[in-house]
Computed example of a mutant assay.
Amino acid sequence: MSELDLYAKYLDLGVTLGRSGEDLTAWVEDKVRQDIERSDRQIERERKREEMEMQRQREEMEMQKQREEKEMEMQKQREEKEMEMQKQREEMELQKRREEIALQDRREERELKRLELEAETKKLEIGSRASVDVAGPKQSYGAQRPKIPPLHDPSQMDLYLERFERHAIAFGWPESEWASCLSNLLQDEALSIFLSLSPAEGSDYQAVKRVLLRRFGCDRNGFRSKFLSVKPQEAEISAPL
């Protein structure tokens, strides 16, 4: 209601109440002023209520925002924690797999060593049985010795010994056994020479070889003597220079 409407309302009311003149005017103005003040207070209260409501809404919005931010932060922390736990699980799984592989490698290595040890043991057992079954070095190498014919022509001693050495090397005979094996192939004078040697010389192939080559003129000095003793043929003497 406007101020004019208030004046008209209270003027009619004052006349009705028997007021007039200055008393009526003062009474009307007082009533109008009271109504205006009351209205202003009402308006102020409404304004304050609106401000309080707006403040409340702002606070609620701020609180909601904080709750959402907190929820987002908590969700982020949960996700990070889950990722960290997943990473730890993967690392543990990887470590477990590495340990399994390492264990498997150790098992395979032990198995390989066991097989190697078994093979070596069998090899030693076979060698031990062979050493018991045979009479000595001559029989043990005789099983794999090729059929070399005995020495018939001592003048070919150098060629015969070269042939013997090639066979011995081809069949992997240890040189410590060569002299003993060679003695089984010597005959007549060559055998007599071998038997005349001392045990130390008779077991040394190189010593036996030097003696035989020297005795039958197949060493350097023997070849020189043979060369000087050869007489030229008549055709060679009569041939013109």
Rank of each mutant, 00 (worst) to 15 (best):
R78F: 09
I193K: 03
K70R: 04
L13T: 12
R210S: 07
L103M: 13
L182E: 01
E108F: 10
L112S: 09
A130M: 12
S2Q: 06
E108H: 07
G14N: 07
F194K: 01
L11K: 14
S176A: 09
G136D: 02
V230S: 12
S39Q: 15
S229V: 02
Y160P: 03
E93K: 14
E84H: 08
E71K: 10
M1A: 00
M74N: 13
V208P: 04
P146H: 01
E71S: 10
R47M: 14
M74F: 14
G217Q: 08
L124Q: 05
S131W: 06
R89T: 02
Y205A: 03
G136Y: 02
E100C: 06
R106A: 10
E236W: 13
E71H: 07
E29L: 14
R33Q: 14
M72D: 03
E162L: 10
A235C: 12
I126K: 05
Q86L: 12
A207R: 03
L94I: 07
R98G: 11
E189T: 04
G18N: 07
A170M: 11
M85K: 11
T16N: 05
G202V: 03
Q104S: 09
E236Y: 08
M63C: 09
L103V: 04
E93L: 09
K70E: 07
E59N: 07
K65I: 07
E53K: 08
K65V: 02
F171R: 13
R38I: 15
H167S: 15
D5M: 06
D133Y: 00
E37V: 14
W178H: 03
E189G: 00
M54Y: 15
M74V: 00
E29F: 03
R107L: 14
A170C: 05
M61D: 09
R214Y: 04
P146G: 04
V230Q: 14
W27F: 05
R41W: 15
S196C: 00
A200F: 06
Q206M: 02
I36Q: 11
M157E: 02
S131C: 09
N184F: 10
R210T: 10
G18Y: 06
E69I: 13
L103S: 12
Y160G: 00
E91T: 09
E108R: 09
Q187P: 00
R89L: 13
E44V: 08
K122C: 05
V211H: 01
M61P: 02
T121C: 11
F194P: 02
L17V: 07
E68C: 10
Q57T: 02
R33A: 14
S2W: 04
R89V: 06
E37F: 13
F164W: 02
S183I: 01
K138D: 01
E116F: 07
R19G: 05
K9L: 15
L186S: 01
E109P: 00
Q144N: 04
K209D: 01
A26Q: 15
Q144T: 12
R107I: 14
D12N: 10
L161W: 00
L191Q: 05
K48F: 10
E116R: 01
K31T: 11
S183Y: 00
Q57W: 05
K113P: 07
R224Q: 15
L11N: 09
M72V: 04
A168P: 06
T121F: 11
M72G: 05
Y7A: 09
S180N: 10
Y10Q: 01
Q64N: 07
E93G: 07
E46A: 14
L212K: 02
R220H: 08
